[in-house]
Design a protein around this nucleic acid. Structure first.
Lengths: 200, 200
DNA sequence: CTACGATGAGAACAAATCGAGAACATCATG
DNA sequence: CATGATGTTCTCGATTTGTTCTCATCGTAG
């Protein structure tokens, strides 16, 4: 029968595996649960093993394997609960889909840039935000592009193609002016397909 | 099983390939990870090969090939190229890292909400954006929270705790007014830790 | 009170890992 | 062919990590 302390340690291991995809070291478990002795941690793991909750691979670092409920593949999905600011409590909206971040962002031919400056602030792209860019040589009207001007300066702007063949790069900041340039001077390097930000 | 050091080296190789399109030399891997001996680097690559994470073409310079991912942890990583709008072409700014979206966002106790309305527009949270919320009962001053008012209405606002115990919920939209409420009427359901948006 | 189990600390040992560097092999190039 | 760069294989020693102990403390059932 697993004791409270055993459960504590089991919970930590589970959380760690879910987050990292591999098991913690004895020392990490100890630090997280306030145990200074690797020997003591090991004894707890052994107890959990005899419960069938996990398996210990002898003498290998991070050799703890969770048993039972096999969530082998860590989930990189988050529950999508619903909409906010609609005037309903969230609990009432629960129970919809999950949103898979890998589908959302990850792809070949994409990369991330950290945005500096306020030129796109009115489109909700703030200083310090990350933008996901898909490598492309061409873009459609109205798309936000990474444009290289004269082969020297890279900027983030909204693209407008003019009838005369020139292009206008629009910042989303009323304090800044659009830039009208001949097509030869502008090279599209990619198109912004996503944006994200971390508050921390 | 891949050790920590193995993973470090694998991550570097991945990032390098993502950026250059070809694999690094043993010496480059060593320099990037603080290993002076090519032999040691080679041993790590060999370990990764036996994990099925990559293949080594014998005696070929840059002969490392990333393999299809085993069922292990899928990569939700994108190359982080550098900063934009700094006035330098991107190629010249290229950096080292990858940005791992799973570390960035995914976690237990988190969920996603789709934002409706413009109440946080000046903080760069637009109508239709997704916010990542960490479930919590408490929040610090200045954090953006999901607050349930009178158990009925859920809103996204910036929190301010007043000395008299009441709280003020600040929208980030100058056309809307802050809401000052007694603490009893407001329940914090979570704190916004991230935000993202897809242009598509 | 005593006996027992759970817990933690820490020592001592074993196994695995890691880095350095030497020596050799292979490849590309002039 | 000579040369230099690169990959490969090996051994040595130091460090890290897991394993197995013993000892001490604490709380509780009997």
């Amino acid at each position: 029968m697993a004791t409270d302390r055993d459960r504590e340690i089991y919970d930590f291991v589970r959380a760690y595996v879910a987050r990292h995809g591999y098991a913690p070291k004895l020392r990490e478990i100890g630090q997280a649960t306030g145990i200074r002795s690797r020997g003591t941690v090991h004894r707890h793991l052994r107890a959990l093993e005899s419960e069938g909750l996990l398996a210990i691979e002898p003498d290998v670092a991070r050799g703890t394997r969770l048993k039972g409920r096999t969530s082998a593949a860590p989930s990189y999905a988050l529950p999508l609960l619903g909409r906010i600011a609609a005037g309903q409590p969230i609990e009432a909206i629960e129970g919809q889909d999950e949103i898979d971040l890998s589908e959302f962002f990850v792809n070949r031919n994409r990369f991330v840039l950290k945005v500096q400056g306020d030129s796109m602030i009115e489109d909700g792209i703030l200083d310090g935000d990350m933008v996901v860019v898909e490598k492309r040589e061409t873009a459609d009207n109205g798309e936000i592009v990474v444009a290289l001007i004269d082969g020297l300066e890279a900027t983030l702007k909204r693209l407008q193609k003019n009838r005369d063949g020139s292009v206008t790069l629009h910042p989303a900041n009323s304090r800044l002016s659009p830039l009208r340039l001949s097509a030869a001077r502008v090279r599209v390097q990619g198109v912004v397909v996503g944006q994200f930000r971390s508050y921390r």
